[in-house]
């Protein structure tokens, strides 16, 4: 993991106090662009991901579609989701979407995680899990609007796409980008990718008559560092459940940062209360009490 030190950290899960080293250097935000209109479903990226990350074999399943398995797995982070869509004129359209961590600007996984340093967000936008700090509570799974983190019951830790932080830290592009034969995957700064994506969507609308073509970069999570060009940006759900308005539950924001510490302190009032009772009102003794020293009758 030494190579990851090249990346500047911006956010740390459940970390009290400031983030060390943050803001020392200017950092460009990186971004992966996935153009679903030129993906041919060859799955080179799937293989490249498994190869580069040295992951153990994961058996594939066949369900009469062009999808390798139903969902990503702890050792399979990059899955081409295949969906058939019937258009208004009755013809069938094949939708291929590369499903992986979106590297959200506001990561729900990080907000949900209670373990200090189990999830970090680098200044370049990459969200990464540090398994050595992960306690396997699986809160991140419910915090993530894209259903990405995966629990490995054997190591009792959670895994997901790293956006090849180890490669990016060394100035290389992610493995999936390198493997893609059609150029449907691109990697660069967020600004550049956003620009190319918008241009491509415009081209689709104006030159190909695909009127609803657009870019998917959901602002409800502050934008993502993986963005899509979609044939129909008004209905991302049809691409294998891409949420239209990804959201982080309030309990991971308000509850965790405000009420958790405040109510936790409140419970300690029980302790304070009984101590105060002991020194003020004092214990209740069985009756009759023996007469006190110096009292008459004594």
């Amino acid at each position: 993991m030494a190579d990851r030190k090249a990346l500047q950290v911006e956010m740390i899960s459940a970390h009290p106090g400031p983030v060390p080293g943050h803001g020392v250097q200017r950092n460009l935000e990186v971004c992966k662009l996935v153009d679903t209109t030129t993906c041919i479903g060859c799955k080179a990226c799937e293989v490249a991901c498994v190869e580069w990350n040295d992951m153990p074999f994961s058996p594939t399943t066949f369900d009469n579609t062009y999808q390798t398995m139903p969902e990503t797995r702890w050792n399979f982070w990059n899955l081409i989701k295949f969906n058939e869509h019937q258009k208004e004129d009755g013809t069938i359209q094949w939708l291929m979407r590369k499903d992986q961590c979106m590297h959200c600007a506001d990561p729900g996984c990080l907000a949900a995680c209670p373990a200090d340093g189990a999830i970090v967000k680098y200044a370049n936008g990459i969200v990464d899990f540090n398994q050595e700090n992960c306690i396997g509570c699986e809160f991140c799974i419910s915090g993530c609007p894209f259903n990405i983190p995966r629990f490995n019951p054997e190591t009792k830790r959670v895994y997901k796409c790293t956006l090849c932080s180890d490669r990016v830290g060394e100035g290389l592009e992610p493995a999936c980008i390198k493997a893609c034969p059609t150029g449907c995957l691109k990697f660069g700064t967020k600004d550049d990718m956003k620009f190319i994506a918008e241009e491509r969507a415009k081209q689709l609308r104006e030159n190909f008559g695909i009127e609803k073509a657009g870019v998917y970069d959901p602002q409800s999570v502050g934008g993502t560092h993986v963005i899509y060009v979609l044939h129909d940006a008004t209905d991302p759900e049809r691409y294998g459940g891409l949420p239209k308005n990804p959201e982080i539950p309030w309990s991971y924001t308000v509850w965790k940062w405000l009420f958790k510490p405040v109510l936790g302190t409140f419970a300690l009032f029980g302790l304070l209360g009984v101590c105060l009772h002991y020194v003020t009102a004092g214990p209740r003794r069985t009756q009759p009490e023996p007469p006190r020293k110096g009292e008459r009758n004594g």
Partner: peptide, 18 residues
């Protein structure tokens, strides 16, 4: 699990966080 950053000093008693 509630606040690992505060209580991680005693998680080893239980054999570690996981």
């Amino acid at each position: 699990i509630y606040l690992p950053w505060l209580f991680r000093w005693f998680t080893p008693i239980f054999g570690g966080g996981q």
